[in-house]
Design a protein around this nucleic acid. Structure first.
Lengths: 218, 218
DNA sequence: ACCTGAACACCGTTCAAGT
DNA sequence: ACCTGAACACCGTTCAAGT
């Protein structure tokens, strides 16, 4: 059932996902689903958990930085298979089944190995969660559901017309940025992956955490 | 109209926001709104843009790090006034009116001052956007819309029962983490702000960017 | 235990008609 | 130019009834 739900979300997006459509796919009356599941939200939550699957690593990482790098990559890879779930990742379900205790444990273990403890560990952990989820949510955010090509061409047009006096840097860097910069781009990360930016992001978080640890324990 | 829409979203959340309710608030037939606005999505987008308002700074920052710090704080402050918009910030609308060209220009300017150029500038810019949006989206993510207290107590219970053998670090650090750690916490950032973690996050991004610049231009 | 089937209280959006 | 009013094609969820 969750498999079918995830497949439907993949096709129609979370917003377009409906209990009645799912029931039709399963060859069942819509109300039959309510015997198995409390409601629509639970179906979405279950589908998300299914999509993320097991994010725990196959084997122990060599050091904490490598562990973070691997974790971020696994997370992004998993979401890329079902990009339609991106809109709800940071929104509603971070506090749910999508992040099982074992994953939390793994992140805490990495950060403890990095040298954090006490309240600093908590802050570093929050940083790590936000780091893992944040970039990917933005990268894979979908275009407006209706008339996406229309929106895309309109957006490209709008970006072409940026006032070079008011926004000189933006106007000058437009060729670079159009290739894949948030807000400026006219396509989602599904069609135009931001691989290099993602790697840059990952290293930024790792370097930042290393610097913060130095600072708190000199 | 957008003011009324934002007020309604504040009260009912984005998911609970309906065109018909808004029309009722305005003392008008639902279909009347369609003369002014293309549809529900446009109303939400407009309300978000209104909520974020002008994120440009009052005066030029002293240095790029101070500029980033101030920008992140302004963004968080703005969202905290209308936390109900958090779920859609990273999801659909980052590529919209919510981030006007002047804001993009400002971020590029800061990063250029930091010493980035070319493709590195683009990656640093994507990092800055994800950094600005990512943490706050997670921090202010709402509880499940129905029976939030029920969910909260159930979640607290669940966290209390974490297996200390399978998750030793999590079990040991639970007292710290319950005070405000993603996934572990049972309340949203609206009721339980993660001020210190946010500051930690901000500094992590700044330190990380500084380190990345060193690396690319040694 | 699991599903049907009817029913309830909603939706967003269209389009012709009014003023 | 701006709104009414009816209508269309949907929703999620309930609850009694079936098997």
């Amino acid at each position: 059932m969750l498999v079918a739900a995830l497949a439907l979300i993949d096709r129609k997006g979370v917003a377009g996902f409906s209990v009645r459509d799912l029931a039709r796919d399963l060859g069942v009356y819509p109300t039959a689903l309510y015997w198995h599941v409390p409601g629509r939200n639970a179906l979405i939550a279950g589908a998300v958990a299914l999509a993320l699957g097991d994010l725990k690593p196959a084997r122990r990482p060599t050091d904490w930085a490598a562990g973070v790098r691997a974790l971020f990559r696994r997370y992004r890879k998993a979401v890329r298979v079902h990009p339609a779930i991106a809109p709800v990742l940071g929104a509603q379900l971070v506090s749910n089944e999508s992040m099982p205790a074992e994953l939390v444990e793994h992140m805490l273990m990495l950060l403890e190995r990095a040298g954090f403890s006490g309240d600093q560990l908590r802050h570093a952990y929050n940083t790590l969660v936000a780091g893992m989820v944040g970039f990917v949510t933005l990268e894979l955010a979908p275009l407006p559901d209706e008339d996406p090509e229309g929106w895309a061409t309109a957006h490209r047009q709008r970006m072409q017309e940026v006032d070079a006096r008011q926004c000189p840097t933006l106007a000058r860097e437009m060729p670079h940025l159009a290739r894949g910069a948030f807000v400026v781009r006219a396509s989602s990360g599904v069609d135009q992956p931001l691989d290099q930016s993602f790697e840059f992001w990952t290293e930024t978080v790792i370097q930042g955490l290393a610097a913060m640890r130095e600072r708190s324990a000199p």
